Amino acid sequence: MTTVQRGAIAATIVGLSSMLAACGGGAAGSPTAQGAGSDSGQLRTLVVGVSPSTAALSVGVAQQQGMFKKHGLNVQLKTVQSGAEAIPQLLKGDLDVSLGDTVGTFNAASNGVALRAFAVATVAPSDPAKDFSAIMAKPGITTAADLSGRTIAVNQAGGSAELFAKAAIDKAGGDSSKVKVVELAFPQMVQAVQADRVDAAVLVEPFVAAGQAAGLTTVLRPQAAGIPGLASNLFVASAQEVAAKKSELTDFVAALNDASGFLTSNKTGAYAAAAAWTKQPLAKVEKTRLPTYPQDAGDLEPIKGIGPLMVKYGLLKQDPDLSQILAPVGS
């Protein structure tokens, strides 16, 4: 393995670690080793790495409601709390599938790491009212232009949150080149803004709700403002697994689509499922916004705009070869 590939894997590990931590809590023991068990019969097995986050809620619903079994799959869920666990296991074949970060996946695949995106987990909404992320600031900062010369906290420097935030700031009339970015963990951000250690922060639920309770101002909804319609989280597999298990991955996508249909048509059921999946009280979950789940997870078109955006903001040197990143399996 080359030095470049090691660096790309490390970048992906950081990105996936950040993404897994971003979207919800969950008590210990959530998805670990859940599967169809001994009654699986002729079901084909997929080992899927997820965290108990709302970004992976379609997987949770498909498992809870038997949608994977309907499509002939015995999906065994393995808790993955960090990319340090997920990426090596994907490359070794210990995991068949994992939730993935857009920026990390593009960086790794563009540098020769055999990682492929075959499905979309969540997409950025065009309606700010449906965006579960927010740039939140101290009083007095109310517009994108107000962020010039300010310090903004993100969970990972050079990661998806920074990319989406910069795109949103520029589209809203600000100048992202005049914004200083620092790295902080999500749980520290609200307090850091209150203590004037930073001027603003890029938050996701449930931390957005915490920021609102603390009196912070919502300046922008960065996914809706910056990347409407583009993928914000992915499902990834190694290139070897995509080739060996295309049929299983196709059925995995079909089950995700069933779950997405449930989540988008049944708000009450969606929040109940989210509470069960994240092991959070329903009353707390109902105060947050859920991500937007695609109608067709196998449609990879929402991923394609990420590469040019990364080039624009200096996260890639040139437009990526999408054949080395995307692996359509159908649905």
Rank of each mutant, 00 (worst) to 15 (best):
L290K: 00
L230W: 08
F106C: 15
K180G: 02
I141S: 00
P139T: 11
F235H: 09
A168C: 06
A270C: 11
P52V: 06
Q240H: 13
A165F: 06
L290G: 07
A114M: 05
A167K: 11
V253Y: 05
S331T: 11
L20C: 09
L20P: 07
G60A: 07
V285C: 13
R289C: 04
S177H: 10
P139L: 06
L290Q: 10
A21W: 13
I169E: 01
D127M: 00
Q188D: 12
T54I: 14
K69H: 11
A195N: 13
V219L: 10
K178H: 03
S247Y: 00
Q188G: 09
V204H: 01
V103R: 03
D127R: 00
T288K: 08
S238Y: 12
A275F: 00
G174L: 09
S51A: 14
A36K: 08
Q5R: 15
P128I: 00
K304M: 00
V236R: 05
A10L: 13
T278I: 05
P281F: 03
A134T: 01
A10C: 07
A167Q: 12
K245V: 09
M136D: 05
A185L: 15
G112S: 05
A117E: 06
S331Y: 08
G226C: 01
T79P: 07
D96R: 08
L46H: 03
A137T: 13
F186D: 04
N266R: 13
G104M: 01
M189A: 07
S40M: 10
S160C: 05
F235P: 08
Q64V: 03
A129W: 06
A11E: 13
N155E: 14
A255Y: 04
E248F: 09
L282F: 12
P228W: 00
P222A: 12
L73G: 10
K78D: 08
D146I: 09
L322G: 01
T151V: 13
F252G: 05
A84E: 07
Q295M: 07
A36C: 08
A144W: 14
T217M: 12
V80G: 01
L95H: 12
A213T: 15
G215E: 03
V123D: 05
S30I: 14
A145P: 02
D146A: 15
A237T: 10
A21M: 15
L256Q: 02
T250I: 01
